[in-house]
Design a protein around this nucleic acid. Structure first.
Length: 229
DNA sequence: GACCAGGCACATC
DNA sequence: GATGTGCATGGT
């Protein structure tokens, strides 16, 4: 019971990573001045272009709302909604941000730094328990705000790697994630760059030329043994 | 005017 | 469990 179409040859995913890294270089993810700001960005970027998230974050910064979680937590949802308007879904996201800060204060006294001592699997479950934080947002927070070696699977990753036969297009989040964690060293730096590089690749090429002949992934050997679906 | 963008929750079947 | 829909704005 796997959605994997084939098991990649040893080193395949590493060589793709090297290829992308040599092509694009370090991506410098995640832009954010604090753990809290990274978390806010992770929620704001749900189904939203980062350029629009930046506008919302600028508004929050200018209003002094990101100087501390406490400051943010005191804001009313209506005010947050106004400030994050450029990021879209402002009412929904204002609620989600409030859900997170409510959790943060109830569980950790409003201090993200206190979350660093929690083991990754436990922290993951806690975050997933917050309404508005799904697998991708949760893993983005773990990786980019807390430097945990958790691979983030987004729609680009699914689209690109299913097209190249690594897993079925309808593979679950966990199955897709397992492909990477099982075939890469458990290294926060690699996961950080890999995800960012996939996004870069998708934005730069695949949207324009979905079947481009010079795709960087083309020619990378994937296939060892076929396995059942 | 259509489509897409660094998702998620909820209702329905 | 799978699928469809609402949520919203800004750029191309």
């Amino acid at each position: 019971m796997t959605n994997l179409l084939s098991r990649p040859s040893p080193g395949t995913l590493t060589s793709i990573y090297r290829k992308l890294y040599s092509l694009y270089g370090p991506q410098g993810w995640w832009p954010g001045r604090s753990r809290f700001e990274v978390i806010v960005g992770a929620i704001l970027t749900q189904n939203t272009a980062w350029s629009n998230v930046e506008k919302a974050i600028c508004n929050l910064r200018a209003a002094g709302c990101l100087s501390s979680p406490a400051r943010f937590h005191r804001l009313r949802a209506e005010k947050i909604s106004r400030l994050i308007r450029p990021a879209g879904y402002c009412n929904v996201k204002a609620g989600r941000l409030k859900n997170f800060t409510t959790f943060l204060f109830k569980r950790y006294g409003g201090m993200p730094a206190k979350m660093v001592r929690i083991p990754t699997p436990d922290l993951r479950l806690e975050l997933l328990g917050i309404k508005g934080i799904g697998p991708e947002t949760c893993d983005s927070i773990l990786l980019y705000a807390f430097n945990r070696p958790v691979f983030v699977v987004d729609s680009y990753t699914k689209r690109i790697f299913s097209r190249h036969g690594f897993f079925a297009a309808d593979a679950s989040y966990e199955k897709a994630q397992a492909l990477f964690t099982a075939n890469l060293p458990s290294d926060e730096h690699i996961y950080n760059e890999y995800h960012a590089l996939i996004v870069r690749l998708a934005k730069e090429r695949c949207r324009v030329r979905p079947r481009c002949e010079d795709c960087p992934l083309k020619g990378v050997k994937n296939v060892a043994k076929d396995t059942k679906r």
